[in-house]
Simulated assay, not measured.
Amino acid sequence: MTLLSVNVNKIAVLRNSRGGAEPDVVRAAEACLAAGAHGITVHPRPDQRHIRTGDVHALSALTRARGVELNLEGNPFAPAREGYPGFLALCEAVRPAQATLVPDGDGQITSDHGFDFSRDSERLLPLMAGLKAMGCRVSLFVDAGCDGLESAVRIGADRIEIYTGPFAEAAARGGAVDELARCARTAREAHALGLGVNAGHDLSQDNLGGFLAGVPDVLEVSIGHALIGEALYAGLGPTVRRYLGILDASAGGDQD
């Protein structure tokens, strides 16, 4: 069955918009885990626009206590600055179960592209080795249809995370066949090379079932923006359980 890791960045966005400690990121993560989520994802950025270093430490303690995975996302090339020690330093401090490397810049509103392996592989190689030495499973954010997955294997990746933004946009327009095929092709190529496959970005209750029906053997989906938005109306617990129902239905379909 595909696992659900809930991204709680948006809880921190709301907190930071007012200052203070509410809403509480850890309490929100606890609610997601109580409803059955399999893990928590956060993507701390150097500008600290949402998740902050202290949040990472608190969520690490929570996930360890609950025996679930923390997936820490970030740009390994971004330099440290005041309040942000750098992605590898954060990983060294909290030892997340999974480190997902994403090539996003400070000016991006959200992650919107994967690595270019022809350009980035050699820069990633020593960083990957450092993360693996920390005991982290390492996943690389990739575009559907990308070239160079062999390089991901060579530099030591355990998994890829397929960027599903274009699929979600196409699904919203009512024509996701081509984007779904690109995602499926990339997943099959990764599997053939021995890489695990994760997926994330703009997945929602509306499109998740169709995505999993078309893309084989997805190990984990990381979902935040849509889930938190839907939870404003239905509540965190019921919303997480609805996602788990979609995952259960997809696993049942795979078994038939």
Rank of each mutant, 00 (worst) to 15 (best):
N7G: 07
N7H: 02
V8S: 03
N9F: 04
A12I: 03
A12C: 12
L14D: 07
R15P: 15
D24V: 05
V26W: 00
A28D: 04
A31Y: 00
A34C: 02
A35L: 04
A35D: 00
H38I: 00
H38T: 05
H38V: 03
H38N: 15
V42N: 00
H43I: 04
R45S: 03
R49P: 07
H50G: 10
R52M: 06
G54E: 12
H57L: 15
H57I: 11
T63E: 00
T63S: 00
A65V: 01
V68D: 00
E69H: 05
L70V: 01
L72I: 03
L72S: 06
P76N: 08
F77M: 15
E82V: 11
Y84H: 08
F87R: 04
C91I: 04
V94D: 04
A97S: 09
T100V: 10
L101H: 13
P103C: 15
G105N: 05
D106I: 05
D106F: 06
G107W: 02
G107S: 03
Q108K: 09
I109Q: 03
H113M: 11
D116H: 15
R119M: 03
E122K: 07
L124D: 14
P126G: 02
L131W: 07
L131R: 05
L131G: 03
K132A: 14
V142P: 10
G145P: 03
C146E: 06
G148L: 02
V153P: 10
R154V: 08
G156F: 15
R159T: 10
I160V: 12
E161L: 12
T164V: 12
P166Q: 15
F167D: 10
A168I: 07
A168M: 11
E169P: 00
A170V: 03
A171P: 09
D178V: 04
L180K: 02
L180E: 01
A184P: 00
T186R: 01
R188L: 13
A190I: 04
H191Q: 02
H191P: 06
G194D: 02
A199M: 13
A199Y: 11
A199V: 12
H201G: 13
S204Q: 13
D206K: 15
G210V: 07
A213R: 10
V215N: 04
V218W: 14
V221P: 10
S222L: 07
G224T: 03
G224S: 05
A226T: 14
A231E: 13
A234E: 14
G235I: 07
L236V: 12
G237D: 05
P238L: 04
T239Y: 08
R241S: 05
R242G: 11
A249D: 13
D254N: 14
